[in-house]
Amino acid sequence: MRLKIKNLIINFGLLLIIIETLTPIYFMIKYSISDRDSIITGGDVIPLWPYHPTFMVYKYLLSSPKFIDVFLNSVKVAGFTLLFALMLGVPMAYGLSKIKSVYRDFLLVFLMSIRVFPDIVSVIPITEFFIKLNLDNTILGVSLAHTLLALPYVIFILLADFEKVPPEIELQAYNLGASKTTTFLKIIMPMVIPSIIVSSIYIFILSWDEFIFSYFILGYGEIETLPVYLNKMLSFQPPQNILMGVAVLLSLPVFVFVLLIQKRLLINIKEGALKE
């Protein structure tokens, strides 16, 4: 009896989560494929599904050179951010996991400091600094800014995993004749793959929908990322279906990314659960 009630509550909870997740997706997709009559109904109730679904919006967006350009910019920025954040974050987290003294906590707080202030506060000195380095208005600049934002999280996620690797594993590799590099690449790194995957999702999503830093660093230059572009579009009050089309395309890579690695992620979560 108790069990049944418990199951009921769990299932109800799951249902809420699903509704909460799917509702915005539903609206986004519905509006993006709506014909004009399904949006402007002249007082009638807006239908749950468009009268005449159409992909017109997508055809329009995907044939627009400006949109393609902006989309590719976002892909590039996210890609570079992913690369930089992992290249820096993985060794940094590993290094930190080796420090046993109080300096470590000091360094961790120091690393986190960028995220202690609201973005709108830290964005100004950073933009100024980037302008000095001539990094404003460049893909590289935005990528580096995103790397800065992602690093603390990447390090925290990875640090926990590096610390779980028993020190004997590493000593054993040296003992059997492996160099430090080989030990790191062949033995230690593969053991933290789950965290690298989680970090990658995190970095990608962070960069993909980051607005404030992108907006300041790109200024009014001709380079735009999707969120910046979306913001500019809003000021022109575009039709709702086009807006939602952009929103769907903005979310698409995130879905694809998560779908691609979800199987791997699930395995890791399961393995993790079994290990305990």
Binding site: P166, L171, Q172, A173, Y174, N175, S179
Partner: peptide, 20 residues
């Protein structure tokens, strides 16, 4: 000598097998 050069192998108490 660094450990790699000693030609001495060790079996740790927790076996330290490479899990992957």
């Amino acid at each position: 000598f660094p450990p790699q050069k000693r030609d001495v192998t060790m079996v740790f108490q927790n076996y330290a097998l490479f899990p992957h």
